[in-house]
């Protein structure tokens, strides 16, 4: 990885490589690798397409750093029947677009498809994902991630992995 400072421009290529590596980490349920990708901020799966005031609405997930850590511990601790073992997942992230660009900070929107398998039955999810990324001396970090699932305000299923 190239050297970075908080002022370094994040190119589309940098951002895509980062998101693909995050996707690979999540398909491997490697939460020890996932948590350090963050720099504060919230991991959010809202209900409904329009919501922007996440704190004042009910979400599917609204995790600050502490909740992310607790969630990772739950999913990897071996005491959660739904996550021991979890459904296996294969995901694809594509259709990347920068929606905001500033020195050392970008917002990138992408399309996510996830297929999970458990008990031999497969389920499919699709989402629009928005990452806010910053450049730091340690490389790119996430300051906010919003996963807008299709049918987020409809009937879903239980989910024991991360998007």
């Amino acid at each position: 990885m190239k050297d970075m400072t908080p002022e370094t421009e994040i190119t589309l290529d940098d951002a895509i490589k980062f998101l693909w590596s995050e996707a690979d980490i999540l398909d491997r349920n490697d939460f020890d690798a996932w948590l350090p990708l963050w720099h504060g901020g919230h991991y959010i799966i809202p209900i409904g397409d329009e919501v922007t005031d996440f704190a004042n609405n009910l979400n599917i997930v609204y995790d600050d750093a502490q909740m992310r850590k607790a969630r990772a511990a739950r999913l990897s601790g071996g005491f959660s029947i739904s996550a021991a073992p979890p459904a296996r997942t294969v995901r694809t992230l594509s259709r990347f677009v920068f929606t905001e660009e500033a020195p050392g900070a970008v917002t990138i929107r992408s399309a996510l498809h996830v297929i999970e398998d458990k008990f031999g039955r497969q389920r499919m999810f699709a989402a629009n994902v928005e990452h806010k990324l910053i450049a730091t001396e340690n490389g790119i970090r996430i300051t906010q991630k919003v996963v807008r699932l299709l049918n987020s305000d409809g009937m879903l299923t239980s989910i024991s992995y991360l998007f």
Binding site: R71, I81, S158
Partner: peptide, 10 residues
């Protein structure tokens, strides 16, 4: 769907 309790119930 992604709470710390319900998925284990499900």
């Amino acid at each position: 769907p992604m709470g710390f309790g319900s998925p284990d119930d499900a």
